[in-house]
Design a protein around this nucleic acid. Sequence first.
DNA 1: CGCTCAATGCAAGTGAGTTTGCATCTAGCG
DNA 2: CGCTAGATGCAAACTCACTTGCATTGAGCG
Lengths: 275, 275
Amino acid sequence: MLITQLVKARGDRLTATDRRLVAVLQAQPAEAAFWYAAELTEPLGLHQSAATRMAQRLGFDGYPQLRDALRQDYLAGDGPSQRVRGLLERHPDDVLRGFVDDEVAALSALPQHVAQAELDDLAAQIVAAGHVYLFAQGNAAVLADLLARRLRRFGMRSTVLTGADRELAERLSALQPGDLLLACAFRRVPSALAPVLEIAASGGAFTALITDTLLTLSPQPDVILAAPRGGDDYLSLTVPMAIANALVLTIARQAPEQSIGSLDHLGALLERFAR
Amino acid sequence: MLITQLVKARGDRLTATDRRLVAVLQAQPAEAAFWYAAELTEPLGLHQSAATRMAQRLGFDGYPQLRDALRQDYLAGDGPSQRVRGLLERHPDDVLRGFVDDEVAALSALPQHVAQAELDDLAAQIVAAGHVYLFAQGNAAVLADLLARRLRRFGMRSTVLTGADRELAERLSALQPGDLLLACAFRRVPSALAPVLEIAASGGAFTALITDTLLTLSPQPDVILAAPRGGDDYLSLTVPMAIANALVLTIARQAPEQSIGSLDHLGALLERFAR
DNA sequence: CGCTCAATGCAAGTGAGTTTGCATCTAGCG
DNA sequence: CGCTAGATGCAAACTCACTTGCATTGAGCG
């Protein structure tokens, strides 16, 4: 994309305000191609001259010249005609486009498979839980890591359960009634999942599972959030990660004082490190 | 299409010249939405006032009003911003739906920001590299982990660079010419990034960066793959993860015997564990 | 054949959008 | 702490696209 190339080449001259404007141009290329300077700057509370100066810092005579360039770029590369072409004939060489198409399709379908009400339920359980255990094996481990990071930011305590059996058993030995186990597993059932679920359930913990197709397990988790992933051969974590993110957002919504307060606390701690 | 509707309704008042102009508007709706009156009329050897008068005969105050209508019609119908419509009617309580909308929008735009050719270049460098160093801090660390896992499956050696300065320095001490550094950084520049890039570059390594907005760094990486992430407040890793996945797929495509062979090898090893 | 009306080109006038000099403010630096 | 350089807002000046009155042309019609 032209605007990205321009920033790569001349970005060192840009100010913070310029970058805010550029971000808008990147996010809304079609609309921005029509805008006057004021239409670009006013939503950001900036004067229209900011647009002129950003354009000049990017090497153009003025803002209209930048806009012309954006129009050309938009019509040449990303115009609607190109788009339709893209959807019809699959791109044999464009791995990125093909992959993105699959991912978008899978992601768009996610709300049909997971209801907000289910997220609300699980979020409430997590907010109420004493300690959260996150189980994952293999690639799914990055999901558990991500969830652990986000929960930590909210001031919630969690333990990531990864690795071999002995490791798992050790970590689970601290489990108490009122705790919660959230497992992430895809395609195949990890051999450790059944015992972990059993231990958690018999220990009085609430159990939940984020998965793609693993709908029948024994013991059955209390909550299952399941949505198919896109693509056939290469399975990404986009869809389950979206579930995880939406879950985090739902938690933040349910316990705003706790989550926001924790972020403030985090900021204060960070400043003490910066000294 | 709007212009067709207008002619149906008011076409009886149009002159022969008007119809020639309308035909151009119908044939090139995307381009015409940008044109000044003169740009529309001059290719036909007509004066710009012809545009004004055609617009008036179609019921508009003047030519700019007609053009605005064409733009609206273009953006609403054929344009890529049907997603904007989805973003307007926001779901206040459905966190999942809102989040998915943002993510789909950002992901759809990804191919506009990163070209397959760029992925091809970087993939070739990675295939040729002796050792791959993956740098990431904070949330981005999950990305580095994911890349490390995928590369490992292809039989490529990699080192994840996370954590504090001393740790980084130790790991980097093994860096050799012909190695490759792939950094992941978003929104803010991690303080360790500049020295790491410097060390890698001066050590003869190829340097690359996956990012959202960090386009200007010193030293500048050899390759930058940049695409904005969706949403305003909550920034997910969906878009950068898609870049990473597409990169992995591109590598697999470029070095099929190596990547597939490694997977076979992995399967054989797994069986020996299962015994 | 000449009259009338509508269409079109021309060019001056108008107004919206853009640029730019100036003043203010902030951050970096000695 | 004061100084300098750069960034930003403001407002006047300016540019340029658009409109409109007028003149010309051509077609239709008595």
